[in-house]
Design a protein around this nucleic acid. Structure first.
Length: 561
RNA sequence: GGCCCCUUAGUCAAACGGUCAAGACGUCGCCCUCUCACGGCGAAGAUAUGGGUUCGAUUCCCGUAGGGGUCACCA
């Protein structure tokens, strides 16, 4: 077989050599140790929660080393592409602090465009580049065409690949594959010419020379030293539409774009043998690889399962809808990525997570279970550190998109809402009532007359006359301009007049000596004013509610007794 | 099924041959306290399993079991 001739027949339009192309992508001028990483999603839908892990790692690695982080759109499968997905991806990632130095960006017209000197950054636009390297491989006898008729192609497109794979008879798979591979490799030049003359499309396959009995040492930055069986599969390089598969595009793009560290999900680990072979055939230096464990969920049998597309919480945008602030999700992810993050953060409470020295060596190799408890805890801490101003801004933003009625209330009197958010905020021991913006409405509903209801009943052990007397006693001396201590002294006075204990220590020493205690009286008041048994500090609540509302609510409670 | 990866409490995880096997979340209890939240203190809770190697294995090796991934003209 004359490979030189074969290459000409298959790629007559290609005139450049690999060297020509490489000259167009000169090495980047970066400081020593700078890492070049990328996020390379295919635009088939939303950003997957699991995708945020490699994205965050790649971003941190690049930016904390003074390197470059870029976005490459892997749109090589036209069948699965979703219109507008790439734009959505970019917007969502930006909200989570994943910002790119170069790559695909949203242009002023709202459409995807390129920024940077190593593009195009959409693989669908790089066909001619891939063909240069494809031609070289054919020329060297390292790749060969397999022809298909249009009918066969249609049949291929019609099959449900997932179902097909599931129904596979694995016993015979290996032998079958090897036989097919042998047959296809042995086309004669005449056959090739006949197919080309007939206009039959072809795929380009790699001519694998590996022996799976032999193992190649391979170092993964996360997993350490591994041994990988050599690849013996003639996998597809170019599909019949001339667009590359992931493997080929990965090799060519990451070479030309100067990627130093490939960060990707562990589902790629079984493909590493292919990539080792391809890089060797192409004469490319291997980038460093990091295969990141998948985030898992629990299935109905209690087994861990990969968090898949349909699962609740798989879509990053779900978290926004649930009311989680992106900053909270990012911190949660940091706690999973590097277990010493929390310790660092405790020592540097004011610093943003981007100041944390992210360390590859501290990464875990086993897949972790998504834990809402932990997310909520992290989230409460993050929100408790925000100013009332910021809480108001973010809660409003969430409400506008997800709860218009609540948004209207927040909008109606911004200062009122902010003063509510300010209760117990700041200082060493801030309140931690909110994990999500969605929690805000329930937390503060009693501050708004249209949401105010008396939910909780008094304990039946109390005489209604006592309650009435306590409330009336409070009303008769209530002065909204009182200082906290004066206000509380008045409540003590009411308490004592009822024959209740105003000193909890005295009460605890001898409960039988009293009809009740000041906590009970506070509860009478609290239920009247807030409609519930639990609330933030009553004095602060009353200050914000104002004298009118306090009097009205206590009054109507007295009337209802 | 072949191949690959993984395995310390319910969850996330320290401990890179010698610790009484950290810590965080969750759970429970106590304290603080006008309730809640916060905070403080405390409790329960783990090295999957069987063999080696070693004076000594969570740690190293082999097997077993369990879990995960992958085997497309998808990424």
């Amino acid at each position: 077989m004359d490979y030189e001739l074969l290459a000409e027949l298959l790629f007559p339009q290609v005139t450049k050599t690999p060297a020509d192309v490489e000259a167009e992508y000169p090495p980047r001028e970066l400081p020593e140790g700078a890492k070049v990483t990328r996020f390379a999603p295919s635009p088939t839908g939303f950003v997957h929660f699991g995708g945020l892990f490699p994205a965050t790692i790649a971003e941190r690695l690049a930016h904390q080393s003074g390197g470059v982080f870029y976005l490459r759109i892997e749109d090589t499968d036209a069948k699965r592409e979703v219109a507008g997905a790439a734009e959505g991806l970019i917007r969502t990632l930006a909200r989570y602090g994943i910002c790119f130095d170069e790559g695909a960006v949203i242009g002023p017209d709202g459409k995807i465009t390129d920024k940077g000197n190593y593009g195009p950054y959409r693989q669908s636009r790089r066909a001619s580049i891939y063909h240069v390297f494809a031609k070289q491989l054919v020329r060297e006898g390292k790749a060969y065409p397999v022809f298909t008729t249009q009918e066969e192609l249609d049949a291929l497109n019609a099959t449900d690949k997932k179902a097909e794979i599931k129904a596979r008879d694995w016993e015979n798979e290996q032998d079958f594959r090897r036989e097919e591979q042998q047959k296809q490799r042995e086309f004669s030049m005449e056959e090739v010419q006949a197919h080309l003359a007939a206009g039959h499309p072809f795929v380009l396959r790699l001519r694998a020379d590996g022996d799976p009995e032999k193992k190649i040492p391979f170092t993964d930055l996360v997993r350490g030293k591994l041994e990988i069986p050599e690849n013996d599969e003639d996998f597809v390089l170019l599909k019949s539409d001339g667009i590359p598969t992931y493997h080929f595009a990965h090799a060519v793009d990451d070479r030309l774009m100067g990627t130093t560290h490939v960060v990707r999900g562990e589902e790629w680990l079984p493909s590493v043998a292919k990539h080792l072979m391809l890089f060797r055939y192409l004469g490319f230096r291997l980038p460093k690889y990091m295969h990141i464990s998948q985030i898992m969920r629990l299935d109905e049998n209690g087994n861990k399962k990969k968090l898949s597309k349909r699962d609740m919480g798989a879509n990053l945008d779900d978290y926004s809808r649930m009311g989680y602030a992106p900053a909270c999700v990012c911190e949660y992810i940091m706690t999973l990525l590097n277990s010493n993050y929390e310790e660092w953060h405790a020592q540097n409470p004011e610093k943003p997570y981007t100041d944390f020295p992210f360390n590859i060596k501290k990464m875990s190799v086993s897949g972790c279970l998504f834990d809402f408890n932990k997310l909520n805890d992290v989230s409460k801490n993050v929100i408790s550190r925000m100013s009332a101003e910021e809480v108001y801004a973010q809660a409003s933003e969430w409400a506008r998109a997800n709860d218009p009625d609540f948004a209207a209330l927040l909008d109606r009197d911004a200062d009122y809402a902010k003063s509510i958010f300010a209760i117990g905020r700041g200082g060493k021991k801030p309140r931690k009532d909110l994990a999500t913006w969605a929690d805000a409405k329930g937390y503060m509903s009693f501050f708004y007359d249209e949401l105010f209801t008396v939910e909780d009943a008094y304990d039946e052990k109390f005489e209604k006359s006592d309650i009435k007397a306590a409330l009336s006693g409070f009303l008769s001396t209530y002065d909204p301009t009182d200082e906290m201590s004066v206000w509380f002294d008045k409540i003590k006075a009411v308490t004592e007049r009822l024959g209740y204990a105003s000193d909890m220590k005295l009460y605890k020493a001898d409960p039988a000596a009293f009809r009740g205690n000041i906590a009970d009286v506070s509860m009478f008041l609290r239920v009247a004013v807030t409609g519930r048994l639990n609330s933030p500090d009553l004095y602060a609540v009353m200050q914000i509610l104002g004298a009118e509302r306090v009097k009205a609510r206590v009054g109507s409670m007295i009337d209802s007794l």
